[in-house]
Amino acid sequence: MASEDRLRFGVDLVTFFHPGSWDVADHDAIKAYAQTQPRRFWDKILDGVAASGVTGIELTFSPFNWQDAIKTYGSVESFAAELSSRGLTLASGFFAELEAAGDFTEAGAQSAIIDKAERYADFLKACGSDIMVIGAPLRQTPGATPVRFFDFEQARKIADFLNRLGAVLYGRGVRLALHTEAHSIFAGGRDVDLMMLLTDPAYVNMCPDTAHLILAGSDPLQVVDRHHERVIIAHWKDGLGPMPSDTPIDAHIHDRHRPYFCGFGLGRVDWPGWARLLRDRGYQGWAILELDAAPDPVGDIANGLRLVNQALLPIYR
């Protein structure tokens, strides 16, 4: 099988969340633009993705989520047609409800999450995707009180819910992939190992994010090599290094991440080693090029894809 057939390249739409790329002042202004001119907003994104050279998209939080897409184009079928007309495919959808749910070990919260996930899964399936990437719950800021330990018992409770959620999605033809989000319970090497141990590989898979693993102080190659059989999609992203251990983990944590992300090849990720690892482990599937709010999203995606084509795809051959 040719290397081009083994890997398909897409982009997460968070890449388009930089105010400069929309000529507006801040993120709130991007959201306002999306609300007041939704068709222009989405057409610009989809046209930009197509122009960059990748062929897939990953939906994420509003204003880049599945509900916004349906509202803008009128129906699931119309959105799928917009993708198809540009030669694009829906690779996956990011589901952030676990992070926002607070104590989702409570039965009522779990029921609400499952209901949202089921509706999302039906949308993904209707658009030709079978992967839902799920963000894990955030950790607590070190030193905060009262202390909440992420110990075996807490991990077991979370894993039990992930297993059941994964089984629900599986019944709808969609696979769950847990995302290695920095400062979550699924980014440090020990935490990844623990959750992979406690979850059922038939229902819970993995979406490694190379940059988030770097920010968490982990080695992406080592972590993924230990769990390569669980990887069904991967976020290719570069990072400058581990973040300080006392970084506050609160509503602004994702903003704190951004200064530690960088362009492809400018950070700590060993890209040739990454390519060899995925080749040797027989990985086939989506490689999502994610830049997290890029000032020039189309140009930056194209540059990342150029690096892939010139330096990394030859390794697959």
Rank of each mutant, 00 (worst) to 15 (best):
S85D: 13
F64G: 04
P297H: 12
H235V: 04
H183Q: 09
T180R: 08
G173L: 07
A91L: 08
Y73S: 05
F149D: 09
L90C: 09
H257P: 03
A293G: 07
L176S: 12
L88S: 05
T141L: 01
I249T: 06
S218C: 04
Q35P: 00
A155L: 04
V223D: 05
D246R: 06
P259V: 08
N205M: 14
I45P: 01
Y33M: 12
D28V: 03
G53W: 03
A107K: 11
G217C: 04
G265I: 04
D28N: 13
S84H: 15
V49D: 02
S85P: 00
I214D: 03
E118N: 06
C127I: 04
E99P: 00
A144C: 05
R256K: 12
R148P: 00
L165P: 05
A50G: 08
Q284N: 12
E106W: 01
D47L: 09
T180H: 05
D28E: 13
R317D: 14
P208H: 02
A216R: 03
I70E: 15
S218W: 03
N303H: 12
V174C: 07
I249Y: 01
D68S: 11
H228V: 13
A177F: 12
V24H: 02
D26H: 04
R39M: 08
I113R: 11
S184I: 10
R230G: 07
V308H: 06
R268H: 08
E153Q: 12
H257G: 06
F17N: 13
V308A: 12
R258F: 06
G10E: 01
G189R: 13
D115R: 11
D47R: 05
M195G: 06
I214G: 02
W274I: 01
R276I: 00
R139G: 07
F79A: 09
D103R: 09
D255R: 11
A182V: 14
P142D: 01
T105M: 10
D160S: 11
F9Q: 03
G128C: 10
S92A: 15
I185C: 06
D23H: 14
R119L: 12
L221V: 06
W286E: 09
I253P: 00
A275W: 05
V49W: 03
C207L: 14
I253Q: 05
L277C: 05
D225G: 14
R258N: 11
D103N: 15
L98F: 13
G173C: 07
S129D: 04
G217E: 06
Y283C: 02
L83R: 06
A144V: 05
L215I: 13
F264K: 00
A202Q: 14
M1D: 11
S21G: 02
W42M: 13
H235F: 08
I70F: 03
W22Q: 05
D246G: 02
R139E: 10
D103Y: 12
V192S: 10
G188Y: 02
E77D: 13
W286D: 12
Q222M: 12
H183Y: 10
D225W: 00
Y260R: 07
L198I: 04
K116F: 01
P295E: 09
G189L: 00
F149A: 14
M206W: 01
S218D: 07
P259C: 02
A294M: 01
P295N: 10
F261G: 02
S85A: 15
S218N: 01
T36F: 00
D26I: 03
I114R: 15
I232V: 14
H179N: 10
G166L: 02
R190D: 14
S129L: 09
F16G: 07
K44A: 15
D103Q: 11
